[in-house]
Design a protein around this nucleic acid. Structure first.
Length: 255
DNA sequence: ATGGCTACGATCCGTAGA
């Protein structure tokens, strides 16, 4: 089973990139974030013609997530149960016996912002949700744009970013709580090139300078992580004309 | 120099992203 995550920064703008990527990437399921469209405007038919069904939690203008899968999806669940949130950031489904959670974590804007307070609260809720899922599903994966760079080696210039949102101690503590519950960062199971990132700022020639962050992740329960055979960032779509600022992350599992 | 893009929905600028 091969699964991936990609923040597409508007599915309207990036639909052709997604279709082109699906035609070559050979993934069974792809978790999408930042659709920026409501479910009524989701291109279900176009993706179905490409061989993929969709589970969608849409929102106009902001946020919005989907799982597209060429394998059957069961028990589709939108949002974090029992967590009141206007923002459509989470959708889950079971695919080939693996519980897949697709999430667009809040950005936080700045440490002084109300959005940062919201992010920390949301991270608490996500940790609770993952804890409950771990008790129910031996094979669990959480894929998405976490908006957290877990370690300094995931940051192109740690000194410049120190104390900023995406790397702050409280955000990294929430990441550590996920890991402490038993979730495993599939990317770090393998030897990786130095300075591998998944997001690069549109400004300042960020991609050309490789001035990026690794903030898109695939975490797996220990039983599933034990079956992980590869995990890589695919930089190719970031080189296209009018790219998303994020690149896909892909993982293979022997399930 | 704390900016520099990009997308969106409102107009011809503000909000948001990371």
């Amino acid at each position: 089973m091969r699964i991936a995550t990609w923040n597409v920064n508007s599915l309207n703008v990036r639909l052709q990139h997604v279709l082109d990527w699906l035609a070559t990437a050979d993934v069974d399921a792809l978790c999408l974030q930042e659709l920026k469209l409501p479910a009524e405007k989701y291109p279900f038919d176009t993706l179905r013609e490409a061989g993929y069904e969709s589970a969608v939690n849409g929102q106009k203008t902001y946020n919005g997530v989907a799982i597209v899968s060429r394998l059957p999806m069961q028990d589709i669940q939108a949002d974090i149960p029992d967590y009141a949130d206007e923002q459509r950031r989470v959708i889950a489904a079971t695919i080939a016996g693996v519980r897949i959670v697709c999430a667009y974590f809040p950005n936080g804007q700045s440490l002084e912002s109300d959005k940062y307070r919201y992010k920390l609260d949301w991270l608490d809720a996500m940790n609770g949700y993952i804890g409950r899922l771990l008790a129910q599903h031996e094979r669990l994966a959480l894929l998405g744009d976490y908006n957290i760079a877990p370690e300094d080696r995931d940051v192109h210039d740690p000194a410049a970013w120190e104390g900023q949102v995406l790397v702050s101690p409280k955000e990294r503590a929430a990441w550590s709580t996920l890991i402490g519950q038993g979730m495993v960062d599939c990317f770090r199971l393998f030897e990786q090139p130095e300075k591998t990132f998944s997001w690069w700022d549109y400004r300042m020639l960020g991609f050309r300078r490789n001035a990026g962050l690794r903030i898109d992740h695939i975490l797996a329960s220990s039983a599933l992580a034990g079956r992980c055979q590869a995990c890589v960032v695919d930089r190719a779509p970031r080189k296209l004309d009018k790219p998303s600022d994020h690149a896909p992350v892909v993982a293979d599992f022997s399930v």
